[in-house]
Design a protein around this nucleic acid. Structure first.
Lengths: 336, 336
DNA sequence: CTATCGCGAGACAACGTTGTCTCTACTAGA
DNA sequence: TCTAGTAGAGACAACGTTGTCTCGCGATAG
């Protein structure tokens, strides 16, 4: 509360009656200090509430880790991102590392800004859920380890931690086919988003493999359009009997629409990405669940390996998805 | 990508053919530089990808803002915290300020560690959702502006941004009373948590004012016990006809228990704190909603005022709650 | 034509810390 | 007893930047 500026090593040295350098040694845990002096120094540090000036430390020791990583996710308010964030934080905490985080909101400019800001704050590394716009900007940053998570990057080579999007989406579609569905519609994000592209690819190839043709597809500019898109889809003369939605917010929007029309027990729904309370809805929602905990943990570990100097080609970590049958995906087509 | 160390102002100065100080002036936007020189400097900055060394800047200008704030929330994976986080981030972004964030998990030691870590990283200020253990530790930190959010701090005076917990909980109980309920049970967090205490107080005083006595109360050590606590509560010989739950995770646990027993259309439920999909459950869940967006925005604004030097006594910002009738709270007692 | 002023730009010190070098006092071995 | 060696502790420079001071030059006024 005093307006006085923070104490420096010189203040500590004066209080302890030793030289500046001895304080530095004690603070840095060097062993070449006599025990009684070290004790005096530690007492002075305590009484003055001395904390090393991180800026000065970093300035002097240019190689020093700041024990901070930067994390760029889609939207920290979204359940998937929030859980991923939490997993990253927990793993980072195990290593005594702080987390800087920001939401990208599908805005490439925002992505570049955040990456720059975190780099300038001397993050030791970055975990990025990239937009589809390419990550060439990383080349203009000082050399910093990067791990992509959730989505592959482009224009920059780095480790990536990805869900098995194609096969997961395929699982969803195959499941609907197995229930007898032939008219299976797709609702997903705009194809600029890499995961959206892959899940769409999984949808297409599973349909084709089953001898079906894509029935109806909607690429949404924003998940908030999911509800109205579903309404228009279902109001066609030949409505789909099953829906595959490529993302949790879209799944929820679709569910909302089906409920509004009273069709939630008639039209099957399988969503990519689990979400809280999916099991409490009626019908409970069948999903292809990702494993954000494992994804976050894997990304942090890979990043730390790179920070610790691991070289070698970029690695891809594929985190498996899992179909969770809850009810909405087990609805059979009315005509069958 | 080169292993070379990052460029400094001296490199830029050499490239542009000017003095070190002139580069500094251009980078800091001083106007006393001839346009052609400034242009040469900017070109050199671009071509070398020069970024000022934040540590050196902070070292030289000890008063300088780092344009970073630290945020300590309960759990960034929890919907309430996640939305609060997002609101804080958005407001901070408007001011060009970065956010350091960490989850406390009701662990006072963790709270102290995070506050220390963020302070050492030169956060300009802190936004803290404090545990009930007291914030005396803030006194041992260098002088840093703090705003409490969601919960009042103790042992340290600072602005606080709080929901109207007492009156909000009262609204919930009064609503149940108005539906004819007499046996209204309370399920909440342990009383060590300030908000839990206040909401419990609101519960008690509204009951008393209605001429009722507290019927049954459960203080949970952790929200994960909500489901089993509800089961035991409802299995009493004289079960409650209405439940008031003090927090979103507990509300969800209680709902889950009622559903499991098939009592979700028989026993009324009003929860404090809204949560996603509350409107999609059957019955949709009546809640006393907080306004995390406004809370986050208010906290950031108050913090920036303090950072900008505002003095004066600590302020309390009360953010009103709002009862949202959705169905579960409008169930009437079976006996009535 | 000279004195004064103002503006642009460089020289230099300082911020708080740590790496390196140096110095002193003590210990051990011959 | 003397020398060499060692461990502990201080002096000093340097990290990259900015605040202050100073200098030079052209313009303006007397």
């Amino acid at each position: 509360m005093s307006g006085a500026s923070r104490p420096t090593m010189i203040d500590v040295a004066r209080t302890a009656g030793v030289s500046l350098k001895t304080v530095s040694r004690v603070v840095n845990g060097e062993t070449t200090v006599a025990p009684d002096l070290a004790a005096r120094v530690r007492a002075a540090v305590e009484s003055l509430h001395y904390r090393p000036h991180l800026g000065a430390t970093m300035l002097r020791r240019n190689d020093r880790r700041t024990r901070t990583i930067g994390v760029l996710l889609e939207d920290v308010g979204n359940p998937f991102s929030a859980v991923l964030h939490r997993a990253i934080e927990d793993e980072a905490r195990l290593h005594g590392v702080q987390v800087l985080i920001g939401s990208i909101d599908e805005d490439p400019r925002r992505e570049r800004e955040l990456a720059g800001a975190f780099t300038q704050r001397h993050a030791d590394g970055l975990i990025v859920a990239p937009t589809g716009d390419g990550q060439q900007y990383l080349h203009s940053l000082p050399d910093i380890p990067v791990v992509f998570v959730d989505r592959p990057g482009s224009g920059h080579t780095a480790d990536s931690v990805l869900a098995t999007n194609v096969s997961g989406a395929g699982d969803a579609v195959r499941h609907l086919v197995a229930q007898g569905h032939r008219r299976i519609a797709y609702l997903g994000d705009q194809p600029g988003i890499p995961t959206a592209r892959e899940r769409h690819r999984g949808y297409l190839s599973a349909l084709t493999a089953a001898g079906l043709t894509p029935f109806a597809e909607r690429r949404l500019r924003h998940p908030s359009y999911a509800e109205s898109a579903t309404l228009s889809l279902v109001n066609r003369p030949d409505p789909p009997t099953g829906l595959f939605t490529s993302q949790n917010l879209i799944t929820i929007g679709a569910f909302r629409a089906l409920r509004r029309l009273g069709l939630h027990h008639r039209i099957a729904l399988v969503g990519f990405d689990d979400f809280p309370l999916a099991d409490l809805l009626e019908p409970a929602v069948t999903v292809v669940a990702q494993d954000p905990m494992t994804m976050g943990r894997t990304a942090v570990r890979a990043l730390f390996e790179r920070i610790d100097g691991a070289t070698g080609p970029a690695r891809e970590f594929w985190i498996p998805t899992r179909l969770i049958r809850r009810g909405s995906g087990e609805i059979r087509p009315a005509s069958a």
